[in-house]
Amino acid sequence: MEISGGFIGNNGIPIIILAKGVFKLDVDILFKIAGIGIVISILSKVLDEAGRKEQAQMTTLVGVVIVLMMVIQLISQLFSNVKTMFQLY
């Protein structure tokens, strides 16, 4: 993860280094995930009605994997921030 900048304490010791993109308000990922969920659910219903059970299942699986890719990035950002902040190495 890239490092954007650190806090320098009063005595010159660098205290905490934050990962990039921390202070941005990124709510749009929430709407992205919800949109993917709605689209996937409609698609799988349509495919189910058309009698293509396997393809409906595949669509669900692909949707879950795509969402998981986005969530994992956020979780790794969260974990690295907590690790640097509380000095858990």
Binding site: L18, V22, L25, D26, V27, I29, L30, I33, A34, I36, G37, I38, I40, S41, K45, T60, G63, V64, V67, L68, M70, V71, L74, I75, Q77, L78, N81, V82, M85
Partner: peptide, 25 residues
Amino acid sequence: LKEDKPEIALQISIVIGAIIFLLMI
């Protein structure tokens, strides 16, 4: 989303937890 796709609903709750923590950091 909970009725049709509970797995994606769960991921939304994970994301909101992470976002709120990153805002408070």
